[in-house]
Amino acid sequence: MPGTLTGIGANGRITLAHGGGGSAMRALIEEVFLAAFAQDPLAPQEDQARLDLAALAQQGNRLAFTTDAFVVEPLEFPGGNIGTLAVCGTVNDLAVGGACPVALSAAFVLAEGLELAVLRRVVEAMAQSAAQAGVSIVTGDTKVVPRHACDGLFVTTSGVGVIRPEHNISIAAGQPGDVVLVNGSLGDHGAAILCARGDLALQTHLQSDCAPLNGLVDALLCAVPDVRCMRDATRGGVAGVLTELAEASNVLVTVNEAALPVHPEVEGVCEILGLDPLFLANEGKLVAVVPASHAARALAALQGHPLGRNAAIIGTLQASAAGQGAVHIVNEFGGARVLTMPSGEQLPRIC
């Protein structure tokens, strides 16, 4: 075996030597990253991934490209870890634009002193999530920085996908009369991360909803090809997506508060801390806007998928009488309030 990490690392931890370009770095790449990600261990290792253009062109007529950095704290939490988050977040950013995810890159910033066992678990989770999504992690980079220069581990992932010609999904495509759906309970990730930090001594069974949504999106698009808009409700939660939708499409979004699917434990955490589940982050939830005539078909498609069993229709789009977009939340008594976004994050470091 080419080098052993336990012999190179100090007590099974990352050292600055692992980023120095020598044998320690080679052993790290081969034993941790290539062991998990390489589709063909015997393939030549180049400085770039090479994708077959002809194969991509058979899937669609446009490329989608996205990138995101992940700095969640803690690195591991109920329902996943920073690796799960990195793969699912990038896959979902591609999928909600109507793209079929094809390949990902992954860049790691490792702090001196990081436990190698933690790094292995993160990388294994990334490989498992990529396999679940049907994508490959085809290229990447590793840097090691002095301890305290970063909190253990940061990951940046980028992804390439292919968009089919028939799909033109945009946050600015909403029209009066359209219907708004979500695929399940809101705020699970944000609440799970908050509880995992242990600062508030809250005992719950909450887990992050981290999941690749491309299979769910495929099911929805097969049932309703003319989906107007889709977004994954990550930072800013569903409230952030609805606000952006209202502004970009210049419509009034009216949300039925009683229709919002929220886990009882998330409701309890929010009540204790004065938070709103609409603003909490999700990592396996999307907001979709479809023509009203296709709403029932869209709901059935979502509920027929394992990641959409608790899907619900939560609101409608109307013409904006004020001439600018807005979001109104209507309660069970018919009272309405205007949804306004906070100036900052409710919870820091959630993704």
Rank of each mutant, 00 (worst) to 15 (best):
A127F: 05
Q128R: 04
Q128T: 05
Q128S: 05
Q128H: 03
Q128P: 03
Q128N: 02
S129P: 04
S129F: 06
A130P: 06
A130F: 05
A130V: 07
A130H: 01
A131G: 13
A131T: 11
Q132W: 07
Q132H: 12
Q132Y: 06
Q132D: 10
A133M: 00
A133Q: 03
A133E: 03
A133Y: 01
G134Y: 02
G134K: 01
V135K: 01
V135P: 00
S136I: 05
I137V: 13
I137S: 02
I137C: 10
I137E: 03
V138K: 14
V138S: 12
T139F: 10
T139Y: 10
T139K: 14
T139M: 13
T139R: 11
T139E: 15
G140F: 07
D141Q: 15
T142H: 07
T142P: 08
T142Q: 12
K143N: 08
K143Y: 13
K143I: 15
K143E: 13
V144K: 14
V144A: 09
V144R: 14
V145Q: 09
V145T: 14
V145R: 15
V145D: 09
P146A: 14
P146D: 15
P146N: 11
R147M: 15
R147N: 10
H148K: 13
H148D: 15
A149S: 12
A149D: 15
A149H: 15
C150I: 09
C150H: 08
C150G: 05
D151H: 14
D151K: 12
D151L: 14
G152L: 07
G152N: 05
G152F: 06
L153Y: 02
L153Q: 00
F154E: 10
F154K: 05
V155T: 09
V155S: 02
V155W: 03
V155H: 05
T156M: 08
T156R: 01
T156A: 07
T156S: 06
T157Q: 00
T157R: 06
S158M: 02
G159E: 08
G159T: 10
G159I: 08
G159H: 04
G159V: 09
G159L: 04
V160P: 07
V160R: 06
V160M: 12
G161A: 13
G161W: 09
V162F: 09
V162W: 00
V162T: 09
V162L: 03
I163F: 01
I163Q: 01
I163E: 02
R164A: 14
R164C: 05
R164Y: 01
P165A: 13
E166C: 15
H167M: 09
H167L: 15
H167P: 08
N168M: 13
N168C: 14
N168D: 11
N168F: 13
I169G: 07
I169N: 01
S170E: 06
S170Y: 04
S170F: 03
S170H: 01
I171L: 06
I171E: 05
I171P: 02
I171H: 02
A172Y: 01
A172L: 02
A172W: 01
A172P: 00
